[in-house]
């Protein structure tokens, strides 16, 4: 049996604050950016201007390749809130090629055909509120 993910995934808007605004501004332009510590060079996640590796403030927002692999995923049969009527959708952690494992969704796929370790690339779903959600789709 094959089961496709919801054709139109809900795209609830995150709360954008001064610290994470550079990240969300880039998503509207179709760019996935990551904070790189100006002191130790660590590429951090989740986005923040503080570096939890060396304890210093100050990052450069670098462009990520936008590709990675599926670290793990779950097929949620019934969501809540904005996802209440989404139908089955895939919640996942994707390990970016730059290193960080980030929570996301796998979209535009047959849920029975994806596996841990599959290569994926980023797509953006506009929230209509000055941000776009970075989701991932299998690279065929």
């Amino acid at each position: 049996m094959t089961e496709a993910t919801a054709p139109v995934m809900p795209a609830p808007a995150p709360i954008v604050n001064p610290e994470n605004k550079p990240f969300w501004d880039a998503t509207v332009e179709g760019r996935l950016v990551l904070p790189k510590c100006q002191n130790c060079g660590s590429i951090n996640w989740y986005p923040r201007v503080f570096c939890p590796e060396c304890g210093k403030f100050g990052v450069d927002w670098i462009d990520a390749a936008g590709t990675g692999t599926i670290y793990t995923f779950a097929i949620t049969r019934r969501g809540m809130g904005a996802y209440g009527k989404a139908g089955p959708y895939v919640l996942a952690y994707v390990e970016l090629d730059e290193g960080p494992r980030i929570m996301t969704n796998i979209v535009d796929c047959d849920v029975d055909s994806i596996n841990i370790g599959d290569k994926v690339r980023v797509v953006f779903h506009d929230t209509g509120s000055g941000s776009a959600l970075p989701r991932f789709t299998p690279v065929s």
Partner: peptide, 22 residues
């Protein structure tokens, strides 16, 4: 600080435990 990078993707309680199980 982390909410906007997680909650928008629909992480139900059972979904997050399923991630670990998988």
């Amino acid at each position: 600080p982390e909410g906007g990078f997680e909650n928008v993707f629909g992480p139900t309680i059972h979904g997050m435990y399923a991630l670990a199980a998988k």
